[in-house]
Computed example of a mutant assay.
Amino acid sequence: MSAIPDEKKVVYPFLGRSGIRVSNLCLGTLTFGENKHLGLPGQCTEEDSFQILQRFSEWGGNFIDTANVYGKGNSEAILGKWLERQPRDKYVIATKVFFDMGCENNVNNRGLSRRHITDSVVKSLERLRTDYIDLYQPHLWDDGTPVEEILRTLDDLVRCGKIRYAGMNNVTGWQMQKLVETSRRLGLNPLVSLQQQYNLACRESEYEAFQVCKAEGIAVMPWSPLKGGLFSGKIKRNSVPTEGRLGWVAEKEEGRQSQALPGYSSFDETIFKTLDVVEAIAKKHSRSMPQVALRWLLQKDVVTSVIIGARTLQQLDDNMGAANGWALSQEEMQQLDDVSQRPLPYPYEFVFQMNKDRYNSSISNYHVQSQ
């Protein structure tokens, strides 16, 4: 592998209103280790994972995201084994909590109760072989636990030093605002980030959740930025992949939201028109389609760091090529915005349209999206 010129390496924005800086591309580790519970093919061996981590570090990457549920602990364990050999303070490590880790006959082994969070963070620290977690994130909203209990528990973990910051994953707009207001009312350490699916085929979070983040200075970290391979350049009109992970998804018609579905059979003209524009812009810049899709996210003002995944060093290097050293023009950004935008439902279309000339800098620090 060739050395990476400094001008092409990552940049380091602040993580929301916190004082910590992270690489603008974050390495996601869902592909690390055996992952039988999801049945995903093409997972990385420990050796492959170490090579990807090392190459990511050579690119200047310092932000790594995992979850306790990835491989039922395998991902955290592999990352921990690698991290133990590195200078710990060089890296910002993020992990998550919510899902059942496989403890039989234990109804309390799921969700965001104080008990489950505190038990889970101890086990994550053991697997990661570290004394602290930089960013700890509930994996999604929990209808079964009071918001106050969740936030007080996260705040306690910050105060006792087990975690440095807390963030959130996978919420609706009202849920994000509820978390913000409750934290403020109780005088707790605020949430600094929101990890949410965001890509050229999944933009619904722009309606509300990201407006909360803009108003409150909360960092957005998109996951599945290529929509499970949709923007890999391998999907064409009237053509279904037959090999690799995309072929596996196509065969199973797998319906997880992170994949390039709900089903190849239901792809509509908006998807294919978006793919056409991404491909045209990629050719113009002599870039790959994934790099264009990633660059579109990186140039969104609400986005701090985009979570990428890689199963090979070649995939990693291609994705990292979006980090710095080039940019989409304002016109190209608008092209991608326009072609991927779906009709806004009520009340969003009505509210945004009626407020498009009502921006008041004295009462708001963000522009209401108008279409």
Rank of each mutant, 00 (worst) to 15 (best):
A3M: 14
P5N: 14
D6F: 11
E7K: 15
V10I: 08
P13H: 14
P13C: 05
L15N: 04
S23R: 10
L25M: 02
C26Y: 01
G28R: 06
K36H: 06
K36W: 01
K36S: 14
K36D: 08
G39S: 07
L40Q: 11
P41A: 03
G42C: 00
E46V: 14
Q51H: 13
R55V: 04
F63P: 00
N68W: 00
G71L: 08
K72S: 06
S75M: 15
L79K: 07
K81G: 04
E84A: 15
R85T: 14
Q86L: 07
Q86H: 09
P87E: 09
P87A: 10
V92E: 06
V92T: 15
T95K: 09
K96A: 10
V97E: 02
D100F: 09
M101G: 05
G102Y: 02
G102E: 13
C103H: 13
V107Q: 13
N109L: 09
H116W: 12
D119N: 11
V121L: 00
R129L: 07
Y132V: 05
D134K: 12
P138S: 15
P138L: 13
L140C: 12
G144W: 02
P146I: 12
V147N: 11
V147D: 01
E148W: 01
D155K: 05
L157R: 03
R164I: 02
N169W: 04
N170A: 07
V171T: 11
Q175I: 01
Q177I: 03
T182L: 08
S183K: 02
R185Q: 06
L188K: 11
N189W: 00
S193V: 03
Q195T: 12
Q196V: 14
R203E: 08
F210P: 01
Q211P: 00
A219P: 07
P222M: 10
G229Y: 03
L230M: 08
L230Y: 04
R237M: 06
P241I: 14
W248P: 00
A250Y: 06
E254G: 03
A260E: 09
A260V: 07
A260P: 02
S265D: 12
D268Y: 03
D268F: 03
T270N: 10
T274Y: 04
T274F: 05
D276F: 05
A280P: 00
I281Q: 11
A282E: 10
K284R: 13
H285R: 11
S286M: 12
R287F: 08
M289F: 03
Q291H: 11
V292G: 04
W296M: 03
L297H: 00
L298T: 01
L298M: 11
Q299C: 13
Q299M: 06
D301W: 00
D301Y: 01
V302P: 09
S305N: 09
I308W: 04
L313H: 11
L316N: 02
D317S: 12
N319W: 03
M320S: 02
G321Y: 02
N324S: 14
N324A: 10
A327I: 08
A327Q: 15
L328D: 06
E331Q: 15
M333P: 02
Q335D: 02
D338W: 07
D338E: 13
Q341A: 15
P343L: 14
L344H: 08
V351P: 00
M354R: 09
D357V: 04
S361Y: 07
Y366D: 01
